[in-house]
Design a protein around this nucleic acid. Sequence first.
DNA 1: ATGCATGAGTA
DNA 2: ACTCATGCATA
Length: 226
Amino acid sequence: MMSMNSKQPHFAMHPTLPEHKYPSLHSSSEAIRRACLPTPPLQSNIFASLDETLLGLPAHMGCMSDVDADPRDLEAFAERFKQRRIKLGVTQADVGSALANLKIPGVGSLSQSTICRFESLTLSHNNMIALKPILQAWLEEAEGAQREKMNKPELFNGGEKKRKRTSIAAPEKRSLEAYFAVQPRPSSEKIAAIAEKLDLKKNVVRVWFCNQRQKQKSVGGCAINY
DNA sequence: ATGCATGAGTA
DNA sequence: ACTCATGCATA
């Protein structure tokens, strides 16, 4: 049910449009920089064209940045990356927004969260592989031109409702973990039952399980993914 | 740094 | 309904 997805995924295809939901500090800077992307795209993937090129080739290639998939290399790169990033005096958030200025087709900005997760290896193996060349490109670019300007957060506006984060209490969380230990993928009915027992919304429980599964798959976690 | 959530793509 | 990449909000 979830196998053949070992190809380079689609990481920069999220429009990121809270539109109706949480319309706060978005439209301005993000909309502009996204509008500037040469490839607006639906299925954009900087590796897409590459894949096509490789379709007729043997089981290997050897161009472009490394397509290595060794967790050790990723770990080493992540470490070096963080080190150099700090050396440059740049924050994770800065890196995220700076990626857009790189003008790589199909690559927009990323959040502080994602950069942080990349550095701490808390992303899936595939995600790490996909992001590595992009962050590497940024790093080289930034080091090459160690003297530019910073875009500052145009945090303005006031008045739109913000998303509120649900917080699952410790006791409930412990129960969920216990359930997860025996059954990581409970059926819809099971989820409903658990939700009722813990007095949580069914959707909250469902998402919790999804996130737990995703966590298990991170390179940083205790994964055996590859 | 991390918890809960969204949304596109998929099976 | 799930996976996967990603992000807002928050600790």
